[in-house]
Computed example of a mutant assay.
Amino acid sequence: MFPVIYSDEFLLHETGVFHPEKPARLTAIKSALEQTIWAERIDWIEPTATQTRSPVAWIEKVHPVEYIQSVQQICQSGGSLDPDTPVSVKTYDVALLAVNAWLDGVDLALSTGEPAFVLARPPGHHAEPDRGMGFCIFSNAAIAATYALAHGAERVAILDWDVHHGNGTQAVAAYNPQIAYCSLHEFPHYPGTGKAIERGVYKNLLNLPMQAGSTIEDYQPLFETQVLPFLTAFEPDLLIVSAGYDANSADPLANIALKPADFGIFTDYCLQVTRKIVFGLEGGYDFDSLGASVVATIERCLV
C-alpha cells in the first residue's frame, strides 16, 4: 500500500474563483489517482488532527510567533498576506492541518523506510520566516525538515522541482548544515531568487536555473551530473521533495516544457538516493497535467 495523506478540509482554504491555487487542484489529483489501475494500492490517510498534535510549536521553529499571530488575525476577517496570497476565515486552520500532514509524512517515511505523498494545500516553499507570499502561508518543507531532525534524522535533503525557486525553504536551509537544498527552477522567473552562485553558508545549496523552454533532455544531464552527486554525497536520512508540477508545458504560470511522464523519471532519480522520501505538493495549475504528473510520481514508487 502507498500512503497518501489527504483531507477534504484542505479544500476549505478559499482563494477566489479566479485564483490559480484553488481547491479543485486537489480534487483533480484525487480523481486521477482513483482512476488508475492500481488505485486499490493507495492508502488514503487522514492527517493528524491539530487538537491531537498542535503543529504550532514546530512552525515556531521556522516562523516568528509574531508572524504566526498575524496570519491568524488576517484570516479571521479574510484578506491577503500579499497581492498573490489571499486567505479566508478557514485558511489558518487549514494551513495548520497541512503542516501536520507534512509531519505525518515524515513520521511515515522514517518509520517504514518507504515513500509517502502529502496531498495538501496551501503550498509552502515561498513562505519566508517573516512573510507569506506566492500562494504560501507556512514553510511546509522546511518545517518538516526541522521536525525530522528532532525525530531521529541527522541529515535531511530537500529537492525542489517546482518551476519556481523555493526562496522560503532556502532561507531556512542556508543556515542549517544538517539540511541540504537543491532546486531546479525557471530563471529569471518569480520570485527572482535561486541564482547558481547562491550556495549557502555551509555550501549546502545547489541552485540549477533552467531556461524557458527546457525539456527533459535539459533536465536529465543535470540530475545525473549534479543533482544525484549532490544529494548522495550529503547522505540524507530523509529526502523531502517539494513536488510542484508547474514545470509542465501545459501549465499557465511558467514556460518550461516538461511532460507528466517526466516526473516519473525524476522520481526514479530520487529513489536512487533513498526510499525514505516525503513528496509534498507545491505548485501545478493545469488540472490534467497536474493529476497525470502525481500519478507518474506515485507509480514509480510502486515498482
Rank of each mutant, 00 (worst) to 15 (best):
T225W: 06
S77L: 02
A173M: 04
D286F: 12
F223H: 05
N100L: 06
F117E: 02
I74E: 13
L159S: 05
D93M: 10
Q272V: 01
S139C: 15
D246M: 03
A212E: 13
T36R: 07
T36M: 11
L110D: 04
I256K: 05
I74Q: 03
T267L: 11
F117M: 08
T27L: 10
Q272N: 10
E60G: 07
N176V: 10
E128Y: 02
Y181H: 07
Q76Y: 14
T50Y: 04
C301Y: 07
L81M: 14
T50I: 15
D160E: 03
V303H: 14
L119G: 08
A39K: 13
G284H: 06
P177W: 12
L184K: 01
H165N: 02
I277N: 06
D107V: 10
K61Y: 10
E60T: 12
D251A: 01
T225F: 00
F279K: 02
V163Y: 05
W44Q: 01
V87I: 13
R199I: 15
Q76A: 15
L206P: 05
A247R: 08
L302A: 06
T215G: 06
S7R: 02
G284R: 03
N207S: 15
Y147K: 09
I240Y: 11
P129F: 13
V295Y: 07
V89Q: 11
L103S: 12
E198S: 13
A173K: 09
H19D: 08
A144C: 11
C136F: 11
V227Q: 00
V163T: 10
Q226P: 08
W38N: 06
I179E: 12
I298V: 12
T27D: 08
M133P: 00
L222S: 00
L97P: 00
R53Q: 11
A142W: 09
S293W: 03
D288P: 00
P188D: 02
S183R: 07
F234L: 09
Y285F: 15
L103C: 05
A257V: 01
E21K: 00
A145T: 12
S111W: 10
A257C: 14
C136Q: 12
L119T: 12
K195W: 11
A95K: 05
C75K: 04
A296K: 09
A98V: 11
Q72E: 15
G283V: 04
I5M: 03
S31W: 00
G79N: 14
F263R: 00
L97K: 07
D104E: 01
A95R: 00
I68N: 12
C270D: 07
P252I: 06
A174E: 15
F263Q: 03
A142N: 10
P86I: 10
A196L: 11
N255V: 09
V156K: 14
